[in-house]
Design a protein around this nucleic acid. Structure first.
Lengths: 206, 206
DNA sequence: GGTCTAAACGGACCACAGTCCGCTTCTATT
DNA sequence: AATAGAAGCGGACTGTGGTCCGTTTAGACC
């Protein structure tokens, strides 16, 4: 045996075996089909495994958990959305005034969260740390825009304050329990942005 | 049989049988003990039932679900908190300036949410509608205070915007992942209140 | 083609939330 | 005290997420 072959090349992420790739695709297709047909809630891991013609253990090996599988189902649309934010046309993408971009961001994220509400909730599961990657991107972007706008104050906390009302459970509550229209919620968020980024010229709260 | 006895007296909530009351107490005591000893996450319904010396069916009959049981464990402290808000001493209770009351409310709710984070999360479970009673109270109170302050705009949405960053998952993220101190988060929330209730004298966002 | 090994597979298995239904116990009524 | 019937009880049972481990297979090297 020639020893230089044995040295692991760091950074090479170990190529995926062909059967593994095939099964991964089969599972994701089956999962997507079942979600489309029965709704996120009704899809069980056993059903996915059987529909994919694969053992249950295989599904968990590839996706870790139900939440992990659901998260993967969101990957495409999330990646597209992030691409639109980073390099798409204005006002969502770069080129527009940062205030415009922030408003476009909010509307866009709000609509995406409502559109994929079920999947997003299922993708979080009950594990302590949320699916941090997605959240981290939005937080970073909002902080960046607030900085560009020149907002003074604790930017990290202000970004959280703007993102919190866009969280799925809160939007669901507003839409499904309080029967607020989406346009009203968007308008409310834009008003909130106005108040948050306005120079604090009024008297302090106390 | 005398027929007038058969008429149900509407509004009389059917008195609780004595064995039922005994079991209810036993279950709640056992649950509290297990939660204190092992933490919320580690407490199973089987364990509660056994510790209470009761069948599993009984636990579910009385509390509906694990989330329901956890919610009951919060009842005392939640009721005390609500009483403090409604009729306790200022600045949390009535008597103080509404701005003062709002700031006190935020700090108090934030601390309570962090103190009981595990139990609150377990009490929500994954059922679509949240434990609406508790949320509804806070929302109503914040709307009332915003009205008293004389804030102009969509009061319902502004109340949501103030409450959203106090939600348990968001606070946990800030404290446990981003390592923000509680005082900093409180200060950030007070700053947010200032921006939200300030007369919008600055230029509109666009 | 043969051989070897790590990766992948799959389904039996486990834990836990929640349901069901035949049995027991309380309590109102006489 | 006796009776009746409703309220309550309990534990076997089910469905689902997740784990484990003996078996299979891809693919690298000869």
């Amino acid at each position: 045996m020639s020893e230089h072959e044995l040295l692991p090349i760091v950074g090479q992420p170990a190529p995926e075996r062909r059967d593994a790739a095939r099964n991964r695709d089969a599972v994701m297709c089956a999962a997507q089909r079942l979600v489309d047909r029965d709704g996120v809630e009704a899809v069980t891991m056993d059903a996915v495994a059987e529909a994919a013609g694969v053992g249950k253990g295989t599904v968990f090996r590839r996706f870790g958990s139900r939440a992990g599988l659901m998260a993967r189902l969101l990957d495409d649309s999330e990646a597209a959305w992030q691409a639109a934010v980073i390099s798409g046309p204005p006002p969502l993408g770069p080129g527009a005034d940062p205030r415009e971009r922030l408003l476009a961001f909010g509307r866009s994220r709000l609509e995406a969260n409502l559109r994929h509400a079920d999947l997003l909730l299922a993708a979080v599961g009950d594990d302590t740390s949320r699916s941090y990657a997605a959240y981290s991107f939005t937080a970073t972007h909002v902080r960046y825009l607030l900085g560009e706008i020149g907002v003074s104050g604790d930017i990290a906390l202000l970004a959280t304050a703007l993102l919190a009302p866009l969280e799925v459970p809160i939007l669901r509550q507003q839409v499904e329990v309080e029967n607020l229209g989406v346009e009203r919620i968007v308008a409310g968020w834009e008003d909130l942005v106005g108040r948050v980024i306005a120079p604090t010229t009024g008297p302090p709260p106390r």
